[in-house]
Amino acid sequence: MSAYTKAQPGSHHEAHDEDRAHELPYATQVRANRLGLWLFFISEFFLFGALLITRFYLWNVPGVGQTRPELSQELGLITTSILLLSSFFVYRGETAMTFGDRKTFTQSYLLAALLGLLFFVGVVVMEWNLFGLTLNMFGIEWFGHLKPSDGVHGGVFYMMTGMHALHVISGVGLLLIAWNRGRKGMYSVERHWGVEGIALYWHYVDVVWIFFYPALYLIGKAV
C-alpha cells in the first residue's frame, strides 16, 4: 500500500532535479491526481444532483405531475449532438497522445474545443436568446423564448443550463490550454497527465448533460 517512497533517480523521465527530490514519483503522482479528479467528480455529482432534485421538486405540479417548459426541441437536439460529437474528438485526441501521435492529438483537441464553444453558443446565445433575436428557418425556432423571469420554469432552466455552461466554457479553456501545450511539445507518451485529466473532465461534463437534456427537454408535460 505504501506507494510513497523516496523519488528514485531512474523513475524520472528527465534528468534528476534537486528541486523535485521530495516530490512524489511521477507514476504515483498521476495515480493521486486520478483519484483526486474522481473525488472531484463525486463532489460535483452532488452539485448537479441537487440541481436535478430542484428541477423535479419545483416542476412537479400536484395533480398534473412533472411539467416542462415549451422549448425548441430541434435546437436542443442539435446542441446535444454537437456536445456528444466533441467527446468523440477528445477521446480520439487522448488515444492519439498515448500512441505518440501529437498531430492528431492537437487537431482533435482543437476541434473538440471549437465544438464545445459551438455548444456554448447554442445554449447561451441561442437558447437563452441573449440578444433578443428571432429566426425561423427550415421550420426550426433558432432562438428560445423562455425568459429567466418565467416563474420556476425559467429559474430552473437558466440555473441548470447556466451551471452546465460554466463547466463547458471552463472545459473549453482547459482543452485550449492542453492544445497549446501539446503544440509546444510539452506532452510525451509517458507524461501526459494534463491530456488525460482534461479528457476525463470533458467526458464528465458531457455525461452531466446526458442527464440534464432529458430532464429539461423531454420529461414531463409541456406547459
Binding site: 473525488l39 463525486i42 463532489s43 460535483e44 452532488f46 452539485l47 444532483g49 441537487a50 440541481l51 430542484t54 419545483l58 429567466p148 423571469s149 416563474g151 420556476v152 425559467g154 429559474g155 430552473v156 437558466y158 440555473m159 451551471m163
Partner: peptide, 25 residues
C-alpha cells in the same frame, strides 16, 4: 465535506440568483 458541501453551495447560489438575477426558486 467533499460531498454534502455541494448541496449547500447550490442552495446559496439559488438564493443569490433569486435575489439578484430575478430567477424564481
Amino acid at each position: 465535506q467533499f460531498t454534502a458541501t455541494q448541496t449547500v453551495g447550490v442552495a446559496l447560489t439559488l438564493n443569490v440568483m433569486e435575489r439578484v438575477a430575478g430567477l424564481t426558486f
